[in-house]
């Protein structure tokens, strides 16, 4: 009998967007509140895992044609570059700074270079989790 997955697929189509928005919120929230790159990344990968459960591993691979192993390298590169970038200003390795900027829509915001480091953490966490799950999930 062909399985009928209409309920779970329709629910997933709506819920994935909520999870992704909340994960991005968690990622940007991490400087002053609970959150950060690690749980933001885990949440993003959980949204993708929900897509894999509701649809198919190959379908998800088609709509997200990303080689996650390259994404690990990109995340590590971002983290190392933000750490090395402090040499340009004559300060020790991994020194971070912040400043207040006025953006067009958001108004005055505090931007820290720790956010870039967190972006590297985020990408590595997403990529490692999805690599593990995709490797285990593929039947061969």
């Amino acid at each position: 009998m062909r399985p009928n997955d209409v309920v779970v697929q329709t629910a997933t189509k709506v819920l994935v967007f909520i999870i992704l928005v909340f994960s991005v919120f968690m990622f940007f929230n991490g400087h002053h509140n609970p959150g950060g790159g690690f749980i933001g990344g885990l949440m993003t990968s959980s949204a993708v895992v929900l897509l894999m459960l509701a649809f198919d591993l190959d379908t998800v691979k088609r709509i997200l044609p990303i080689d996650y192993k390259i994404l690990i390298a990109v995340g590590l590169l971002i983290a190392v570059l933000t750490a090395v970038g402090s040499f340009l200003f004559g300060v020790p390795f991994l020194s971070h700074t912040f400043g207040y900027f006025t953006l067009p829509i958001l108004g005055e915001v505090e931007l820290a270079t720790a956010l870039l480091f967190d972006l590297g953490v985020y990408l590595v966490v997403v990529a490692v989790t999805l690599t593990i799950i995709q490797t285990i999930g593929e039947d061969r």
Binding site: V7, V8, A11, V14, L15, I18, F22
Partner: peptide
């Protein structure tokens, strides 16, 4: 807004989980 989102989320996911 997080609590409102959580209410919406529980309302949407729990019946789907029970159905499955």
């Amino acid at each position: 807004a997080r609590i409102l989102l959580a209410i919406l989320f529980v309302f949407a996911t729990a019946p789907v989980g029970g159905h499955l």
